Amino acid sequence: MNFNRHLILASNSPRRQELLRHAGFEFKVRTKEVDESYPEGTPPEEVAKYLASKKGAAYKIDHQNEVLLTADTIVKLNDEILGKPQNYEDAKRMLTALSGKKHEVITGVCIKSKEKEVTLDDTTLVYFKSLTEEEIDYYITNYSPYDKAGAYGIQEWIGMVGIDKIEGSFFNVVGLPVHKVYQALLSF
């Protein structure tokens, strides 16, 4: 992929890095701590895009040739946002809540350069089968999903055995709607 700009991925996520690499982009990773709070009353479907923009605002574009990409993924069950679990009990609570239900995975993305900024998002519906307590315990113990929204990674064991179907982009659930990001980056 011949992208003639210096792409900076502002994310520690190994999954986002892998997805961008597989999409053919070369990039540098640059990260900083950004407060991931959002205004109370923000509609859940707007939170991921808000946080991606907030992360983007934390960076200054130094050179004309740089393009920065930030992202945030949330899991929405009914109107509750399930972020990253704090501990084992929190992960178990989230997976128990998701068991046997449909939920939404929403990823917001901010791409910016010196001359422009684009924000986008994508939503995928995920349908979990009913999970047993043993399956939930096995997954948390063996995969430690503490860095994942909703306490799971679709590309891991639980996604293989516990998800009946999805509607939308698989890669969005992994953490980046690659099809939309690819098109947006080409516009830079």
Rank of each mutant, 00 (worst) to 15 (best):
K32C: 14
I74D: 07
M94N: 09
V29H: 02
V118N: 04
S99A: 09
H6Y: 09
G100N: 08
L19H: 02
F188Y: 15
L186T: 07
P39Y: 13
T73I: 05
Q64R: 12
L120R: 05
T123H: 02
F3S: 12
E33N: 07
M160Q: 13
K55L: 02
Q86C: 07
A149V: 04
R16W: 01
P177V: 06
S37H: 15
S130C: 01
G41F: 12
Q155Y: 03
F188S: 13
Y88V: 07
A57G: 12
F170R: 14
K112I: 08
R30F: 05
A71P: 05
V161P: 01
E33F: 13
V34M: 12
H103A: 13
K180T: 08
F128M: 11
Y182H: 10
E115F: 03
V47D: 04
I158Y: 03
I158H: 06
V34A: 13
I158T: 00
L176G: 01
V174W: 04
Y38L: 06
V67F: 01
S144L: 11
P43H: 04
K28G: 11
E167L: 15
P145A: 04
C110Y: 10
F171G: 00
Q155H: 07
E80A: 10
I136A: 01
I74Q: 03
H22Q: 15
G162Q: 09
L7I: 07
E156N: 08
Q155N: 06
I140T: 02
K84F: 08
D122Y: 07
E134K: 09
M1L: 12
R21M: 09
R30G: 03
K180G: 09
K54L: 13
L185G: 08
K49R: 15
D72I: 06
K55E: 02
T70Y: 01
W157E: 05
A151T: 10
G150K: 07
L131K: 02
G159N: 04
I136K: 01
E66H: 04
R5G: 00
L95V: 10
K114P: 00
V118M: 09
K76W: 00
F27W: 12
